[in-house]
């Protein structure tokens, strides 16, 4: 099904530009054209289809659904919803406060917010098309687990102690209240409204991520064409235990969304980087970013922020080590 993109790239790079496959430039350029066209077409088509399906899902509904739910189930559901609910990362603070003032425990709210950047439809699509369904499934399971375990951990250490005082008050008030549906009843959407939503959603997401695809695939192409075969395997292979925490640390200042990182990850894996190291790098780039943490400062005290940060770094490192040691299963 994807051969058409290979053919297109061959035609453009080899026939039209007259480059050959055995030059570095030709090889890298072919990789670039093939991946960019494939990803663009997939993104446009699939974001539209997925947006049609989830047109009526929004953070307000998730909040009402989670409020007053059994705690054990709550982490699981919150993390699952984090994966599929659309919201702009600039809304994290209002979402945090909205959940909190509905009396939802901090851990459950954070399970939602942690999973959200890790898993979204764009990331899943890219993984499916570049790295296959096994890796995609693995990625989704790991992402959801990080959310659930992170949330559990935060509630176990009673993280609500270290909220900023106004947020802590809102939480207390929310938990004291009888649970009630806060939602103004949303009328179900007609097909036309769904189409309208899906169209604007597609354009909005695409206009946001296309440059990341170019940058990500461009870096991937450079790695593909110019880093000698075996170099990565030799220097950053599974034998080097320190390569995982190093990948996590390198990922922190690099702030990107999943769209930009996944093409880079693909070429790293193809070039021999162990899967666990690649996963750790990807998750650290996507989920642990300084801008996000500066925003969270508005609702959390430094202490909680530091704990959260350390927790993320530790869990990504563990994920990396675990997958490097079991990668023979893949």
């Amino acid at each position: 099904m994807f051969e058409i993109f290979t053919d297109l790239a061959s035609w453009l790079v080899y026939d039209l530009l007259g480059l050959t496959a055995d030059t570095k430039l030709g090889d890298a350029l072919h990789f670039f054209v093939e991946d960019v066209t494939k990803i663009f077409v997939l993104l446009l088509g699939m974001i539209y289809l997925i947006a049609l399906l989830r047109a009526s899902l929004n953070v307000e509904k998730v909040r009402d659904f989670l409020a007053g739910k059994n705690k054990g189930l709550g982490y699981f559901l919150a993390s699952g919803f984090g994966a599929i609910t659309p919201f702009c990362s600039c809304s994290s603070i209002p979402v945090f406060l909205g959940f909190t003032s509905a009396g939802i425990p901090v851990g459950i709210t954070m399970a939602f917010l942690l999973t959200s950047p890790l898993i979204n439809e764009v990331a899943v699509l890219l993984l499916l098309s570049l790295l296959g369904w096994k890796f995609t499934l693995l990625y989704i399971l790991v992402g959801i687990s990080v959310g659930i375990l992170g949330g559990l951990f935060l509630d176990t250490i009673r993280a609500e102690r270290w909220l900023q005082s106004f947020a802590a008050k809102a939480l207390e008030k929310g938990q004291a209240q009888q649970v009630q549906s806060l939602d103004e009843s949303v009328p179900s959407m007609s097909y036309k409204e769904r189409h309208q939503f899906a169209k604007s959603e597609t354009l909005e997401i695409f206009s946001r991520v296309w440059k990341w695809v170019i940058i990500g695939v461009g870096l991937g192409a450079a790695l593909h064409g110019f880093v000698p075969d075996g170099w990565i395997e030799q220097h950053l292979g599974a034998g080097q235990w320190w390569s995982v925490p190093a990948a996590v640390l390198v990922g922190i200042p690099l702030y990107s969304n999943a769209t930009g990182v996944i093409p880079v990850m693909e070429s790293l894996i193809v070039n021999g980087l162990p899967i666990g190291t690649a996963l750790a790098f990807c998750m650290s780039t996507v989920a642990a970013s300084f801008p996000e943490f500066v925003l969270l400062k508005q609702v959390m005290q430094w202490r909680l922020l530091a704990i959260l940060f350390a927790m993320l770094l530790l869990s990504f490192t563990l994920v990396g080590w675990i997958f490097n040691s079991v990668s023979f299963l893949m």
Binding site: E60, F87, C88, S91, P94, V95, L97, G98, F166
Partner: peptide, 10 residues
């Protein structure tokens, strides 16, 4: 203040 309007999507 944003919370006071019970708005979650900005």
């Amino acid at each position: 203040q944003i919370m006071a309007y019970s708005v979650m999507s900005t």
